[in-house]
Simulated assay, not measured.
Amino acid sequence: MYLLDETLWFPNPSEANQDGLLAVGGNLSPERLSLAYNSGIFPWFNDDEMIMWWSPNPRMVLFPKELKVHKSMRQLFNQQKFKVTYNTHFKDVITACSEIERPDQDGTWITSQMIDAYTELHHQGVATSVEVWQDNLLVGGLYGIYLKDKHLFCGESMFTKVSNASKYGFISLVRKLESEGVKLIDCQMHTNHLERLGAKEISRESFLEFLK
């Protein structure tokens, strides 16, 4: 495992350990975060830990053309159940993602330091948010990093306050990104929820080849 300082660099992702942990330390400057995502690396750590940088193998991804929209969701779209906007309330979305209770997690990894760092990336046009509304209330959403030159979107986190809101936002985003020429959506780690939407695991090597 590598210990990073203020120097802007990362080791080769192939040197990550079995769990996908590559390095610790460094900072969350916009420049370092941009380099990380362009190198197939992302940060994930708790508030009381050093910054941890990951490049897991395998990698959970979704090819937009393989998106699965089940009948119950198609009915919600036919009903126009929710309103979806983009990049109108980024800070509210990432804050909600940090505050939502998750049964399988103890606390949150989206610290105040992370919120500030990704909000700055949003101001630079790199971090994107999706907002899902019902009766003028923000009931769901997600955010991630949009690497337009690589035709890649890196999903970070989502939240929902009413049933199916985040899924509605995710499906809307995937359709929008596909229309913009995005070829791959990075979901990072396996979840059953993402698998039901059509995501699958590929090798780290294949993922890095796509980045090139």
Rank of each mutant, 00 (worst) to 15 (best):
H190M: 07
P58D: 11
L3V: 14
K167S: 06
S29M: 02
F210G: 01
L137P: 04
W109T: 01
S166E: 00
D19S: 15
G125F: 09
I94F: 06
F45C: 06
K183S: 10
T191G: 02
E6S: 12
L208M: 05
F42H: 00
Y143A: 08
M73H: 05
K71G: 08
S14K: 12
F42C: 00
F63G: 01
N46L: 09
P58V: 03
K167A: 06
G141W: 05
H70I: 13
T88R: 14
E49Y: 07
H193N: 05
A117R: 01
V61Y: 03
E178Q: 15
E6M: 09
S29W: 03
S166K: 01
F210L: 03
Q75L: 12
K68R: 13
H70C: 13
L173N: 01
N38R: 11
G26Q: 04
R102N: 14
E180P: 04
D106F: 12
L194D: 03
L173K: 01
W9G: 10
F63D: 04
S172P: 00
K81L: 08
E99L: 14
Y2H: 11
M60V: 06
S163H: 15
D186V: 00
T111N: 09
Q124R: 13
Q79R: 15
T95W: 04
A23Q: 02
N192Q: 13
G25D: 08
K65P: 06
E99G: 14
